[in-house]
Simulated assay, not measured.
Amino acid sequence: MYLATDIATDALVILKLPSIDLRHDPDYLKRFMMEEWVARRINSPHVLKPCTVTRKRNFLYVVMEYVEGQTLTQWMIDNPAPEIEVVRGIVEQIAAGLGAFHRMEMLHQDLRPHNIMIDKAGTVKIIDFGSTKVAGVVEAVPGEDGREMLGTLQYTAPEYMLGEGGTPRSDLFSLGVMTYQMLTGRLPYGASHATARTKSQFRKLKYVPAPDDNRAIPVWVDGAIRRAVQPDPYKRYEVLSEFLFDLRHPNAKYLDTASVPLLERNPLLFWQGLSFLLTVAVLVLLARLYGGP
């Protein structure tokens, strides 16, 4: 990827060339060629736009608009403790871009901080479409069964790692993980999500609540994020708008934390309490056994 100047317009553009290491990989080349095709069919201020190429192409390349700013990855480094309202604004803009994909029956499939740009005006854009799946377009799906994992594991929905097909809820999972990371600086399941490969392993994942001693995150915001990143896609929100609404408006069922098992709310406290009770039980049994008649 290179920063270049269009000699016809004198505008700065991004020139993207195929990877030298993958130039003989037909699946990679299919995805590369699909990237511009996808970009030309999406019209959103929150999705990177392709540049019009009027001259004859003598080799394979893609020209995209240049966004002066920083990736969400760098933004999180520069803003380790952002206000919730700022995070909401970023999430809503990403969701607007995702919505443009979904309306065209496309799944992004590789939503992660490195693929999000924030320009100097604060506009957020999705910038990479190399993993996008287009409904009914076989060429957009690598391999014969279309089940190759293309995303970054920390943000990839479990159904992909189980070899199942994705849905808009899969992109929502990735958005939920990024929302959690922006607010906490952590991942909702730690490192265990990236190593899980079976349904049993995903069922055993323990969500780490976002609120802690250092961050005043409302429990109802945490409840919305928890639902968005559920390992089971059918337990997530059906549409992006529901998630966005719950990020701004307290949902009554997330205010009643007593209805959530302690094991899910605070796994560490649960196991500490269980260990204490077992220790007491053992001491009582020993006392009865050796305490005489």
Results as ranks from 00 to 15, higher is better:
Pro233Gln: 09
Asp213Ile: 09
Gln181Cys: 01
Phe243Lys: 02
Tyr237Ser: 12
Pro231Ala: 07
Asp212Asn: 15
Ala140Phe: 06
Thr257Ile: 15
Arg147Lys: 15
Leu183His: 00
Asn266Pro: 04
Lys253Arg: 15
Gly176Asp: 06
Pro211Ile: 06
Pro168Leu: 11
Pro261Ile: 11
Lys235Pro: 00
Pro218Asn: 06
Ser174Ala: 15
Met182Thr: 10
Leu268Met: 13
Ala210Asp: 04
Phe202Lys: 02
Gly163Cys: 13
Ala216Arg: 13
Trp220Pro: 06
Leu150Pro: 05
Asp213Val: 11
Lys206Glu: 14
Tyr189Asp: 03
Ser170Cys: 01
Ala258Trp: 00
Thr167Phe: 09
Ser192Leu: 01
Gly166Val: 07
Thr195Leu: 10
Pro211Met: 02
Ile225Trp: 00
Gly166Cys: 08
Leu263Trp: 03
Ala191His: 06
Arg248Gln: 15
Glu238Ser: 12
Val221Met: 03
Arg227His: 02
Phe245Ile: 00
Gly151Met: 04
Phe270Gln: 10
Leu150Glu: 01
Tyr207Gln: 07
Leu187Tyr: 07
Pro267Leu: 03
Asp145Gly: 04
Val219Leu: 08
Leu268Lys: 14
Leu262Trp: 01
Thr152Cys: 05
Leu175His: 10
Leu240Ile: 04
Thr184Cys: 09
Leu153Phe: 10
Ser174Lys: 11
Thr156Asn: 07
Ile217Tyr: 06
Gln201Pro: 02
Glu242Ala: 15
Tyr189Lys: 04
Gly163Ile: 07
Ala216Lys: 14
Gln181Ala: 15
Arg197Asp: 13
Tyr237Ala: 13
Leu240Thr: 01
Leu205Cys: 01
Tyr237His: 13
Arg227Cys: 09
Gln230Asp: 15
Tyr189Ile: 03
Gly163His: 12
Phe245Val: 00
Leu153Val: 02
Asn251Lys: 13
Thr156Cys: 12
Ala210Val: 03
Gly185Ala: 11
Thr198Gln: 08
Gly166Leu: 12
Glu238Ala: 13
Trp220Leu: 12
Asp213Asn: 04
Pro231Gly: 04
Pro209Tyr: 05
Gly146Leu: 08
Ala224Gly: 06
Val221Tyr: 06
Pro267Asn: 08
Pro209Lys: 02
Asp256Gln: 14
Glu164Gly: 05
Phe202Leu: 00
Met149Phe: 00
Leu263Cys: 01
Val138Phe: 13
Val208His: 07
Ser192His: 06
Arg215Trp: 05
Ser241Gln: 15
Glu139Leu: 14
Leu262Lys: 11
Asn214Val: 00
Arg227Glu: 10
His249Pro: 01
Ile217Ser: 09
Leu150Tyr: 03
Gly190Ala: 09
Asp246Phe: 05
Leu263His: 02
Pro142Ile: 07
Pro158Met: 10
